[in-house]
Design a protein around this nucleic acid. Structure first.
Lengths: 114, 114
DNA sequence: GTATAATTTCGCTAAGTAACGAAATGAGAT
DNA sequence: ATCTCATTTCGTTACTTAGCGAAATTATAC
């Protein structure tokens, strides 16, 4: 029950939903997600830790960066179903479409090393 | 997006999950649900209004009482999927099993008219 | 080894929400 | 028509949580 509640609580935030859908398109690092969401790095990091703890996403080091990716191989029924359903539900959403465009053009090297 | 968020927020509460699963077994009135959950009537009423507004449940008058029932015919993809998945996920949950037993024995006439 | 840069953690504030009791509502029963 | 009783709404309190900036951490690159 508590596990299930954690899943729904994790999904009760607009920015976390946006992150999940971004990651369904492409692996991203924290600073790229920050750029797209328009919130501070610490806030993004907090959201990512919530999504990671549940098993929605996975992280992996690549040079200086940590790449986050969607975990499509979860054994959890609810997690799997949610990840399948989300795109059908939100592909037409204006904000999500705008996020998708940014995902394609975002460049971590421009964002950092200022 | 906001619709989806409302759905997940509605599901982010233990008592609302319990209510949904109770109603999957039997139609219940507010005072019966109150007895099983062990919270005040006003709290139950608030939970029910949240679930009703989204379309998870429906209400219907019967004499003095309002019967609440699970809306299994929702056109919403997420709502439908959630209602299908919840039992698989929680049938083994201790609290839910205890709720199910109480659902079978609860009697609204004993609860009211004290 | 030290410097650099991305990420995480910490302390705080503001907004949101579950719970309660009391008052208001509304429909059935007399 | 009035009374009764289930239910809803209102006002309040306590708790949770998203967001921020600063400090701490971690690991790469020189």
């Amino acid at each position: 029950m508590n596990n299930l509640l954690s899943i729904f609580k994790a999904l009760s935030d607009k920015n976390r939903i946006r992150i999940l859908l971004m990651l369904s398109k492409k692996k991203l690092c924290v600073c790229e997600i920050q750029d797209i969401l328009g919130v501070t790095v610490s806030t993004v990091s907090k959201h990512l830790s919530i999504l990671r703890d549940i098993g929605f996403i996975a992280d992996e080091k690549e040079g200086k960066w940590v790449n986050y990716s969607l975990n499509t191989a979860s054994k959890d029924i609810v997690l799997n179903q949610i990840i399948l359903i989300l795109p059908f539900y939100l592909n037409d959403d204006e904000l999500i479409q705008s996020d998708f465009e940014k995902v394609n053009t975002v460049c971590r090297k421009d964002l950092c090393n200022v």
